[in-house]
């Protein structure tokens, strides 16, 4: 695998991670047959990280949404049962990509606030380990000494912390921390009743 993950991670952190929850909620609303949103998201990250030159992508957020769209289309084409709902609702993703206007680009300050907010949801010890290791740059051994726990436990807290943050970024993320943003208001147009039976 010739992928330099660390180098690409910053790009993903800036351009994809904060928008994952919006993308997820769009995908979930499509009720795609035989496809899990989690699978689509993982495949989206896989496709993007495999791109050789991320910095050349001019509209990163659109690119992420388009990648997810391509995955859905691929799946619909591959599966025999073509879901009309899936095809019909693909434009919902396109809409999501279009509203990525510059004013919606998140401020760096908001990113910090979000990280702080998500960290606050973690168990204290786990959060402290993440901060010591990543932000203060302590080694595993130094962290273990400072907290009087074993190195193995430090590693466990790191893994748990990363896993919990992965879930939190995907679920809560941006959309729930900024309920006043316009993207919430436009949701109302999509609640439809279809009388069925009679």
């Amino acid at each position: 695998m010739g992928i330099d993950f660390q180098e690409k991670a910053r790009w993903l952190a800036r351009n994809v991670l904060p928008y994952e929850s919006i993308l997820r909620s769009r995908l979930r609303r499509m009720f795609l047959h035989g496809m899990e949103v989690d699978d689509i998201i993982q495949e989206m990250y896989a496709r993007i990280v495999s791109q050789p030159a991320l910095e050349a992508i001019r509209y990163p957020r659109q690119y992420a949404f388009q990648t997810a769209t391509a995955i859905v289309i691929d799946h619909v084409r591959r599966s025999r049962v073509v879901s009309i709902t899936a095809v019909g609702s693909l434009d919902q993703l396109e809409v999501a990509a279009l509203d990525a206007s510059p004013e919606q680009q998140l401020e760096f300050r908001e990113d910090i606030a979000e990280v702080a907010q998500l960290l606050a949801l973690l168990p204290e010890r786990t959060r402290e380990v993440l901060i010591m290791r990543r932000v203060e740059g302590l080694s595993q051994q130094e962290t273990a000494n400072k907290l009087s726990i074993s190195e193995k436990t430090v590693e466990k807290h790191m893994a748990q912390g990363v896993a919990a943050l992965m879930a939190l970024f995907g679920r809560g993320g941006k959309s729930s921390s900024h309920p006043s943003k316009p993207k919430r208001a436009d949701d109302d147009h999509e609640y439809k009743t279809l009388p069925s039976g009679d």
């Binding site: 952190a13 699978d39 993982q42 496709r47 990113d111 910090i112 932000v135």
Partner: peptide, 29 residues
Amino acid sequence: PRHVGAYAKAEAVLAQLDRAGAAGADALR
């Protein structure tokens, strides 16, 4: 391939932590 995607996201989460950490550890505490 999903492993690649999940790992890329895990690294992105850590990178986001690094970025936010530029404001100082106390801002995150």
